[in-house]
């Protein structure tokens, strides 16, 4: 459990970090909280020659709320997301989901940027960002660009981020309506066996807006567009809910691991989706 040798850099602004990334290409990696990266380095599953620590860059930390628009710096820790009262008022699902990540020690160091940019389908934030239809801001040698969270993930640990790009912030509009993030896990600190998030609004007895997403049920986070199409504009009854759950499970594609076989995961996916839907509806 000893990593191979690497050079450590701690730039104090994003331009310096981007320029280091440009210099070293795929031999460099940025490190945020390190909870995913350090274990794979220690197991020598990855060989990183240049490690660029982002913790000295203040411009990519903090939470900004303007009207209905929320912007979160990539180096904002999960505990900061949890403790921010303004954010809780305007987007309570962030606290609900963050509290289900790992344990307090991990959340003290774990960042939203690391969680979403690593491309690990087991992480909770990428699913949450599908739900919120968030936008990721990436900074690279060719400047800054925006990528929709729903278009960011290509496969497990593969994203549209270029080698020299660094995720600097995440923005989204404050959600409205009922919400819930449901996660089944084996124990504290574990990744989800299955997790689902729902945001949904009911007006005049009809579902006027909806968003549903899944975590750790495929090689990327899953935005359940088919299920959303089913529920939008409909009166919510048991029949519709059954169809919605079926459509979500249909879009899942879990793999077997020590948490259980595929059949079990798909079944539990149905259960967590149902729980999330039920609780979100109760909160409308």
């Amino acid at each position: 459990m000893i990593p191979s040798a690497f050079t450590f850099y701690k730039p104090d602004n994003i331009d310096k970090a981007v320029s280091l990334m440009a210099d070293f290409g795929d031999e460099a990696r940025v490190i945020a909280g390190g909870h995913s990266l350090i274990p794979v380095m220690k197991q020598r599953l990855t060989d990183i020659k240049h490690l660029i620590d982002l913790s000295g860059i203040n411009e990519i930390k903090g939470i900004e709320i303007t009207d209905n628009q929320i912007s979160i710096g990539a180096m904002t820790t999960q505990v900061e997301l949890i403790n921010n009262e303004e954010l809780f008022k305007i987007a309570p699902i962030i606290r609900e989901a963050s509290l289900q990540i790992a344990d307090p020690q991990v959340r003290n160091l774990g960042t939203i940027g690391g969680n979403v940019a690593n491309g690990d389908p087991a992480n909770d934030m990428p699913g949450l960002m599908q739900l919120l239809d968030a936008t990721y801001k990436l900074s690279g040698s060719n400047g800054v660009r925006d990528v929709k969270a729903r278009e960011f993930y290509e496969g497990a640990y593969f994203t549209v981020r270029e080698d020299d790009e660094i995720l600097i912030s995440i923005s989204f509009e404050a959600p409205s309506g009922g919400y819930a993030y449901e996660k089944q896990k084996r124990k504290i600190g574990d990744y989800a066996t299955a997790a689902a998030g729902v945001i949904l609004k009911v007006e005049n007895n009809m579902c006027s807006s909806a968003s549903i997403a899944l975590t750790n049920l495929s090689d990327t986070p899953v935005y359940c567009n088919k299920a959303v199409d089913i529920i939008l504009g409909k009166e919510i009854d048991n029949n519709i809910l059954t169809q919605v759950i079926e459509a979500c499970v249909e879009q899942s594609d879990p793999v077997a691991d020590q948490r259980g076989p595929v059949e079990f995961k798909r079944y539990v996916a149905g259960i967590v989706i149902k729980k999330a839907l039920t609780r979100a509806i109760e909160r409308t």
Binding site: Q184, R186, T193, R259, G260, P261, F264, Y267, V268
Partner: peptide, 11 residues
């Protein structure tokens, strides 16, 4: 008797 094995009993 972890989650999936208990689930399997029920199934």
């Amino acid at each position: 008797h972890d989650h999936w094995r208990v689930w399997k009993i029920a199934k």
